[in-house]
């Protein structure tokens, strides 16, 4: 079988780490793409039987409905404390949190920073769509300046609501972090890059280097009041300026080279 045929089969088939249930996320939401990338990586690493998924409170509270791995739903913001408890109790397991911006960067900021700073051997996928999606589009810690939401109807004013928080830049200041990268999946060519970033964050845990996190800039067409194409364009034009893409911490690539891992 040629490589192209293998790729085609991979693209056309359902990853084993997903259970086949149709996603219930809104049209144009990026959760579906990122779920699939995570599931593909779980399959590629052969981790399905070792994975513990910690879903957050937010739209992806339903993540467990779609992934065919053991897991739980943490209290709002506490996913990384729950993950810490799991990993400390059972270090042989592969522990993954999947969190949104309100969860990870507002109510759970303390848990996020301390788990990262302890270098917990867990991996976090962080979805930043600049709003609270599940509760109906309220202002998030990552809402852009001037952006209108249901709780910032006059637009986010830094004098009143402060500034969007930059978690990857914060991660750079924490020695326990082994991998931190900000990516997007709004254009097809972004997707393999995002997958590679998440792969490195998996390796941060699997090679015992430290905490791994990937921030994915994502759309929320429903709460942004746009169609999916418009939302992707808006992300490209606005979010990428506020939240620069790129690798913020990488202690993993070197260890991969040392250990001969590709």
């Amino acid at each position: 079988m040629s490589e192209q045929v293998k790729d085609a089969i991979l693209l056309a088939s359902m990853p084993k780490a997903l259970n086949g249930k149709e996603f219930t996320y809104c049209p144009g939401c990026h959760h579906g793409i990122v779920h699939r990338l995570v599931a593909e990586l779980i399959d590629e690493f052969g981790l399905r039987e070792k994975t513990l998924l910690v879903a957050p409170v937010g739209c992806s509270v339903f993540a467990y409905e779609f992934f065919d791995v053991d897991g739980t739903v943490a209290p709002h913001g506490r996913a990384l404390a729950v993950a810490t408890g799991m990993k400390r109790a059972k270090p042989e397991m592969f522990v993954l949190t999947y969190q949104g911006d309100g969860d990870l960067a507002a109510i759970g900021t303390a848990e996020t920073i301390h788990a990262a700073n302890r270098g917990e051997r867990v991996t976090t996928v962080f979805i930043n769509n600049a709003v609270y999606g599940m509760t109906g589009g309220q202002m998030a810690p990552t809402t852009l300046l001037g952006m209108k939401t249901t709780t910032s109807p006059y637009g986010r004013d830094p004098k009143r609501e402060g500034y969007p928080i930059h978690m990857m830049e914060i991660m750079r200041a924490l020695p326990g972090v082994a991998y931190a990268e900000r990516v997007k999946v709004s254009r097809p060519q972004d997707v393999p890059k995002a997958k590679m970033a998440i792969k490195k964050a998996f390796y941060a845990q699997l090679l015992d280097v430290g905490f791994g996190i990937v921030e994915v800039l994502s759309t929320c067409p429903t709460n942004w009041g746009m169609d999916p194409v418009e939302a992707s364009r808006w992300l490209e034009e606005n979010m990428v300026k506020e939240f620069p893409l790129g690798v913020y911490v990488d202690k993993v690539t070197e260890v991969m080279k040392e250990k001969g891992v590709k």
Binding site: T84, G85, R88, A89
Partner: peptide
């Protein structure tokens, strides 16, 4: 707050 959630994680495994 973190303590009780770490317990949640450890107990769940």
């Amino acid at each position: 707050v973190a303590t009780v959630n770490m317990m949640y994680g450890a107990s769940s495994v």
